[in-house]
Design a binder for these strands. Structure first.
Length: 279
DNA sequence: AAAGAACTCAACCGCCTCCCG
DNA sequence: ACGGGAGGCGGTTGAGTTCTT
């Protein structure tokens, strides 16, 4: 006997979500908060698996999502985090406000991986490719390079990779030139700086609160499992309708520009907004 | 202009972890 | 201490889109 399916497969719809389904899910979550995903489809009137609902909400419908391509700053942060955390996408996403693990995972696989390979860096180990391919050369290289052993088997510091990425993105360097730079040991293998707030933040325990500004917090109802009582919420029908409109239009239309914490976030939004308008 | 290749990303699958009885 | 259920996570898939020839 195999494992029981997470939901009754019979009558469960799959594939892309329709606007109607989205509406139902948003309506339900905003009314009841995020609780017991298994029960959500039934209560919300959806013929979907609970998992599917959770995924749709967290990856697409959440009003605090940024959307759009990752900015250069975000990309660097992802690389930094990946160097230390590995493929723990949810942990990485937790430190990028408005980004989902799925989005970061996709971006890593489609963009960053290629960039790193082009730069001659192994996206898995974050070490120079020639070194990874030829372990015999390792000792030789170590004679000339400062290799720092840090947690998660990372020997090339994230800062070094980020710096390389920046160089590669600003110049139109070919693969061969990148390889050359790698061969010439241009990677700066600097030591771990304990005073670096970012790195300290990254190395802190998993309990550390994410770097999320309070302005990104969801103003939705939270659910008290013990008492089955709903906490008070700032969402009313008017707010909900506004959110639905936001899904269809854009934050500019609602004077929400000042919700962005910095210029980088605003830039991300503007880029996406312009792209959407051009469609 | 059309066909095929390459790319992107939303969504699914199945395993793992945590929590509760 | 143990077992079962639910949520969470990471890997993978495949449909839709864009690019190239």
């Amino acid at each position: 006997m195999g494992r029981q399916p997470c939901c009754d497969k019979l009558g469960v719809k799959k594939g892309p979500w329709t606007a109607e389904e989205d509406k139902k899910l948003i309506n339900f979550i905003l009314t009841n908060g995020q609780c017991c995903w298994r029960a959500v489809p039934k209560l919300a009137g959806l013929r979907r698996c609970g998992k599917s609902c959770r995924l749709r909400w967290t990856n697409y419908l959440r009003p605090d999502l940024k959307r759009g391509l990752l900015s250069e700053a975000e990309e660097k942060l992802v690389i930094d985090l990946h160097a230390r955390l590995g493929n723990r996408w949810s942990k990485i996403a937790a430190r990028l406000p408005g980004r989902t693990d799925n989005e970061i995972k996709n971006h890593w696989n489609t963009h960053i991986k290629k960039k790193l390979l082009k730069m001659g860096i192994d996206p898995v180990t974050h070490e120079p490719l020639n070194k990874a391919e030829n372990p015999a050369d390792q000792n030789k290289n170590n004679d000339h390079q400062l290799v720092v052993v840090v947690p998660e088997s990372t020997s090339v510091t994230a800062a070094a990779i980020s710096s390389e990425l920046e160089n590669s993105s600003t110049s139109s360097s070919s693969a061969s030139s990148s390889e050359n730079s790698c061969n010439e040991s241009k990677l700066v293998l600097d030591t771990f700086n304990e005073n670096d707030p970012l790195l300290n933040s990254l190395l802190e325990s998993d309990d550390t609160p994410p770097l999320i500004d309070s302005s990104w917090e969801l103003p939705i109802k939270s659910f008290d499992n013990n008492s089955n009582n709903h906490m008070t919420s700032s969402w009313d029908d008017e707010s909900f309708n506004w959110l639905l409109d936001c899904q269809d239009f854009g934050i500019h239309d609602f004077g929400f520009d000042n919700c962005f914490n910095n210029d980088v976030e605003l830039e991300v939004f503007n880029t996406k907004y312009d792209m959407e308008n051009k469609k």
